[in-house]
Amino acid sequence: MANTIHFEIVTPDRKLLSEDVEYVGAPGINGEFGVLPNHIPFLSALGIGSLYYKQGGKKYYVFIAGGFAEVSPEKVSVLAEVAEKAEEIDIERARKSADRAEKRLAQQKEKVDFARAQAQLARSVHRMRCRESAVAEGTCRM
């Protein structure tokens, strides 16, 4: 179709997604970016956050943590360190992970790896937001 772009998400473990979509919005390291069919080519590092794509007029969400996006006029390829579809996110596990990270940050001990705890907290919070966004859109059930 002329109004779609091929979209793939690949992690070290699996090919998560390979679909023709209408739009892709992703958390670039320097801010969020959007891609429509026939976009100019570019490469971007990815941050932590919710990537979403539109298919059939609906938004679908995927949690992303690190990696790269390569955009061409016909295709968006995401090579992600971590990627989970919103419906795969275990919200209770994410809450527990966020609680553990907050406790580590509050301890303020020298042995606590502050940057690692901050990253864990960010991943957990963004996983929960991704899942909540998908539920709000009606593309994922609780």
Score class of each variant (00 low, 15 high):
Asn3Arg: 13
Asn3Val: 12
Asn3Tyr: 15
Thr4Trp: 03
Thr4Met: 07
Ile5Met: 09
His6Arg: 08
His6Val: 01
Phe7Pro: 11
Ile9Val: 14
Val10Cys: 03
Val10Met: 05
Val10Glu: 04
Val10Asn: 01
Thr11His: 02
Lys15Thr: 01
Leu17Trp: 05
Leu17Phe: 06
Ser18Glu: 10
Glu19Ile: 11
Asp20Arg: 11
Val21Asn: 04
Glu22Leu: 14
Glu22Phe: 14
Tyr23Trp: 04
Val24Lys: 06
Gly25Cys: 06
Gly25Phe: 06
Gly25Asn: 06
Pro27Trp: 01
Gly28His: 05
Gly31Met: 10
Gly31Asp: 06
Val35Gln: 04
Leu36Trp: 09
Ile40Pro: 00
Gly47Asp: 14
Gly47Val: 09
Ile48Leu: 09
Tyr53Val: 02
Tyr53Asn: 07
Lys58Arg: 02
Tyr60Val: 00
Tyr61Val: 00
Val62Trp: 00
Ala65Phe: 01
Gly67Arg: 04
Gly67Gln: 12
Ala69Met: 10
Ala69Lys: 06
Glu70Lys: 13
Ser72Thr: 15
Glu74Trp: 14
Glu74His: 14
Glu74Tyr: 15
Val76Gly: 02
Ser77Leu: 11
Val78Tyr: 11
Ala80Gln: 03
Ala80Pro: 05
Ala83Thr: 13
Glu84Leu: 10
Lys85Met: 14
Glu87Asp: 15
Glu88Asn: 13
Glu88Arg: 09
Ile89Glu: 07
Arg93Pro: 03
Ala94Glu: 03
Ala94Ile: 02
Arg95Ala: 12
Ser97Glu: 12
Ala98Arg: 07
Arg100Val: 06
Ala101Asp: 02
Lys103Cys: 00
Ala106Val: 00
Lys109Met: 12
Glu110Met: 11
Lys111Arg: 04
Lys111Leu: 00
Lys111Gln: 01
Gln120Ala: 14
Leu121Gln: 06
Ala122Phe: 07
Arg123Lys: 07
Arg123Ser: 03
Arg129Phe: 07
Glu132Ile: 11
Ala136Tyr: 15
Thr139Ser: 13
